[in-house]
Amino acid sequence: MKKLILLTGFLTIMIHAFAGKPQNNSTPDSTDLTGLWTLVTVENINPDGSKTLPYGISPKGLLVFDKSGNYAIQILKASRPKVEAGDKNKATPEENAALVKGNNSHFGTYKINKDEKTITFYVENAFYPNWEGTVQERFYTLSNNELKYIVRNTTNGGDITAVVIWKKMI
């Protein structure tokens, strides 16, 4: 039931985000990717080869690709502290830091290049404002309803690379 409520809320937000927006003139060749995906893992690989899980062992997330070329991504750390005051505007600096580090979301339009195995995200709005208006390319693999892509310019900056894995829901 909790998953259904989360899914319904996310889809409602995405419908409002895309409503009245001009459609991407070229429909991407995305038949394999179109649909709803649930997050499996996000793993950061540091320059020295060490690995970290920035959103924890069991992160939560949804990825939507529609047939018109729109996408939306929401990634959350599974375990985030509640705001003690019960009001996000009264969160402590430590609570705010935990909330920021535990969230990554953005939406916009996308294109698929099956020959080069790339997804290109045209980021319109993002939780991390440095990504707004950027174009980001991800190399991907698709196997057994599992989408895996590489992020070379993560929100962590520097030379950190992320491997993100999604499982197709519908």
Rank of each mutant, 00 (worst) to 15 (best):
T120K: 01
T120R: 00
L11M: 11
N144I: 09
G158M: 13
T8L: 07
T8Y: 06
V64P: 00
P47Y: 10
Q136L: 14
G49Y: 12
L33P: 03
L62T: 13
Q23T: 02
L33K: 02
H106M: 12
T134W: 02
V123Y: 01
P129M: 02
K90S: 15
F10V: 11
L4Q: 06
G35F: 04
F107R: 11
L6K: 11
P129E: 11
T155M: 06
A126I: 07
D48N: 13
G49V: 08
G86D: 09
V40R: 00
T27R: 11
L142Y: 06
K67R: 10
G102Q: 08
K168V: 08
K90I: 07
M14N: 08
K3M: 12
D159Y: 03
D87E: 08
N89Q: 05
Y71C: 04
V164R: 07
L63H: 12
D48P: 05
T161K: 10
V83C: 09
E94L: 14
Y122L: 10
P93I: 00
Q74T: 06
L36Y: 00
Y149E: 10
I170T: 11
T92P: 02
V163K: 04
N46Q: 15
G69Y: 03
P93C: 04
I112A: 09
N145P: 11
G102Y: 01
K51H: 01
W131V: 02
G133R: 12
P47M: 10
T118N: 14
N44E: 03
N70A: 07
T27H: 05
T134F: 02
Y128R: 10
V123A: 00
T52M: 05
E124K: 02
K90F: 02
H16R: 10
S143D: 03
L6V: 12
R152E: 15
Y149T: 02
V123I: 05
